[in-house]
Design a binder for these strands. Sequence first.
DNA 1: TGTGGACGTTAAATCGTTTAGCATGGCCTA
DNA 2: TAGGCCATGCTAAACGATTTAACGTCCACA
Lengths: 355, 355
Amino acid sequence: MDETLPAQAGAPIGKVTLQGLARELGLSTATISLALRDSPMVAEATRLKVQEAARARGYVANRGAAALRTARTNIVALGLHDIVNPSFTELLAAVEDALSDAGKTVLLGVSQEDVERQTRTLGTLAEYRPDAFLVSPAAHTRVEDLKALASTGIAVVQVTREIEGSGFDFAGSDDVAGVALGVAHLVELGHRRIGMIGGYGAISTGRKRFAGYKAGLAAAGIAFDPALVMEGPGLRDEGRKAMARLLALDEPPTAAVCFNDLSAFGALMELQAAGLTAGRDFSLVGYDDIEEAKVWHPPLTTVHTFIPEYGRAAAGLALKRIADPGRPVERVEMAPKLVLRASTCAPVPVKRRPS
Amino acid sequence: MDETLPAQAGAPIGKVTLQGLARELGLSTATISLALRDSPMVAEATRLKVQEAARARGYVANRGAAALRTARTNIVALGLHDIVNPSFTELLAAVEDALSDAGKTVLLGVSQEDVERQTRTLGTLAEYRPDAFLVSPAAHTRVEDLKALASTGIAVVQVTREIEGSGFDFAGSDDVAGVALGVAHLVELGHRRIGMIGGYGAISTGRKRFAGYKAGLAAAGIAFDPALVMEGPGLRDEGRKAMARLLALDEPPTAAVCFNDLSAFGALMELQAAGLTAGRDFSLVGYDDIEEAKVWHPPLTTVHTFIPEYGRAAAGLALKRIADPGRPVERVEMAPKLVLRASTCAPVPVKRRPS
DNA sequence: TGTGGACGTTAAATCGTTTAGCATGGCCTA
DNA sequence: TAGGCCATGCTAAACGATTTAACGTCCACA
């Protein structure tokens, strides 16, 4: 009271509730509630009067209370293993946009690729009783870790990554086909000795992209050589180290596909450090096609995976499962597309640096 | 019951509530509630028994119900104007991390730089009764738009951007000093004709960075020339267009500072398209130092603004204000730091391309 | 044998909604 | 005029937790 409020004149500082409005208008809370939600059960005149009063007094509904009654929060919990990775930013933005269009609000949890933290985080999210969980599980997550969520009866949808055998809806890209696309491109250029950088068995995308690599080789009749596979998480540093190891081989590959663009960037850095140029001395294909891929020097040839598209699809799956929990499990796998830029060329035997 | 549950054996499908546990253990809900929260008012033995039962039956607290009673949700609403912009991803990650460490959960809303959408979004977030709002307001947001939030008694903290005169806590970078730093660097290299790319009056960062530009010029005794200022939102495209306009001037500048790295990237593209190379034919200084800045060709000289640091600071301010709503307003302005890379050089008169 | 505490537990109120079922009154019809 | 039917709005009971005053018990001590 010590200073005039800048908000609506006369708006009370304390909370305006349904009951407050009811008392003030001489109506019951039931009527107020119905009127505010445009129920046909309340007379037009009453409805207008109530809505006007609500606006005037600055009434803000309490969804928590409503949720308690209706067992519907309109919250979707989003459990991501990482958000600094640019590909997940795109995903997050698309998911948020799609859900907010549908009247849902996003409650965010980040596991930082740590199963224990993920368990804690998902547990906390669950306490808010979201209508659905949308998760990109951390590496090493087991089926039981996710099943625990579902036992509460909440819809669960996996995005990008999946836990095989969990039996939940899934939206992501067709990684096997995607990486095979990259390999096919290299084969077409004449490469026979093709490495794989990044990706590892602890996550589904790692396994699928690796399978795509093998499938690509098989399709071209090229024997698989485990020495050319450099496992690791898809990070810049890992990509860099992997490329160093590839170049140090007795018989280095002339090209490589990558688990994702981030590891491709690391590989590009290492090539540069070794005095080599991708697209002239070595061929490199990334994966995902994030914004940064086109600005690299040379611009990265990569596989576009339609992240925003499958993000929206994942949101859609969640909405559909909320509406009908009994529906059959659905999987959406977007077909990726090769984007030719300038980081590949015909094979050139890698000449070791004098140093 | 048609199939065995993978969760804890015997875990009921329906919801386990405090009351359920109470009935089962022959205790009152009061005792259960106290026991679960390790209250000293309940005997050790009882506490253990209750906690064990809760674990066994898969009890998950209902925070919505608790919040109704306690008027504390442990939710912090995060209202960002954008999340695809990489600098905001870093911010989001830092804020989420800091808040989750403090036991708060993030409810996300994105305004997409649209005041009307922001109003809708913040309104929705408010219905969940967050303990605090953390906002980076959309362009053109007015004081009243934010005041409406505060009138509900919820803590409001601004991050990155601020609405002057709103009287809320703020954490961000000292943009005036930051851009002045960039200008000083160019001046030191010998530049006298320095342009400014991006930034506009609709947001505080735009105004402050512009002020920094003018302050930098003034400190060097260089007259301000409005023809060298290219206003616009800080996007790649805008930066590109701005650089094109600068180059088309009768007397183009030999250098420019930018509103942010994104517009600097656009400017770099335009330079390249014009057959020029930054760091040899033209000098360019970015702002923010996002991950991508160091991989550009040439690597971008820019001003590092410590985004994660002020993100954590913002989270801290929110926590402090929740704890003590009456405390005096606090502002945190991180001092930025110049990062020298390779996009600047001594002045070279811009020679128009023959085309 | 009272008295007084300490201790553990509980009853009951409360938070702000929603909703099923019921009451009221007016109007139409038979 | 009675009966039935609508339209409208109300009553009251949830929803699942937290909180606090009050209530036994039990024990120690004077």
